Simulated scan of single mutants.
Amino acid sequence: MQSNKNTAINKAAKPYAGVLTGDITGSQSFSDEDFRTILAVLEQHLSNYAMQYNGHFDIYRGDAFQLAVNQPQYCMHIALGLRLALKAHTPSVDVRISVAVGKAHFRPKEVKTGTGEAFVLSGRGLDKIKSNYLAFYSGNTELESKTQLLTRFADTHVSGLTQTQSETLLAYLQAADKSHENIAALLNKNRSNVSRILNASNYKLVAEYLDYMEQTIATQKQ
């Protein structure tokens, strides 16, 4: 599913990027200690995704973040991964994420000063999410029309997942060996229990949605 990852940023060769702008919901309701652990989980996963998909990120204003990756076809994998990781955390929390793909330029470690279509659409999109948690934007109207309704369904589904379902689904999506036996071993759970949780999470539909988004974004690059 994943291509070979380059380690160097080449803005001239790869101006097309995926930008994720997000914030932690209800951040003021947590104790200082709990919020520090939430930020640590967020930073760890942002760091992992930046390394995996050739990108960089910033965390700013305490509860907001922005990640730009030069492999935009994987941006929805990242968005759902971040949400599931934080919903699986104790205390459980959700994040709003506005995803956009398009032309973008950014400097390593200065993502929040990035420019271009993807940054504009992603930033504006977060302001428009309101009661939702996930949205996808593109300057390519055909790409948007193919994906926005599906993304709203995916958003609603993920919003309703429990902490245990989020943990199990994230483990499944990230595992190279996706057999239920392997997921059970990773989580130190009973195999039949893992199968029950995954089925209740509609894991196959989530995986199909991510595959569809990956393929559609990859084929619509401008």
Rank of each mutant, 00 (worst) to 15 (best):
M1K: 12
K5E: 12
A8T: 11
A12I: 12
G22Y: 04
D23G: 03
I24W: 00
I38R: 00
V41L: 08
L42F: 10
E43Q: 14
L46I: 07
L46M: 12
L46T: 00
N48G: 08
Q52T: 13
Y60I: 06
G62A: 07
A64P: 00
A64H: 06
A64Y: 08
A68I: 05
V69A: 03
V69I: 15
Q73W: 03
Y74E: 14
M76L: 15
H77T: 14
A79G: 12
L80R: 05
G81I: 02
R83H: 06
A85K: 15
L86A: 10
K87N: 11
K87L: 14
A88H: 07
T90H: 11
V95D: 01
V101R: 02
V101S: 04
G102T: 09
A104P: 02
A104T: 04
E110A: 14
K112P: 00
L121F: 05
G125T: 05
D127Q: 11
K128E: 13
K130R: 14
S131P: 01
S131G: 02
Y133P: 00
G139C: 03
E142G: 11
L143H: 02
K146A: 14
R152C: 04
R152A: 14
A154P: 01
G160E: 11
L161H: 02
Q165A: 13
Q165I: 09
A171V: 09
Y172H: 15
L173A: 07
A176P: 01
D177H: 05
K178H: 12
L186I: 13
L187A: 06
N199A: 12
K204F: 08
E208T: 10
M213W: 08
M213N: 04
I217E: 03
A218H: 10
Q220M: 09
K221S: 08
K221C: 03
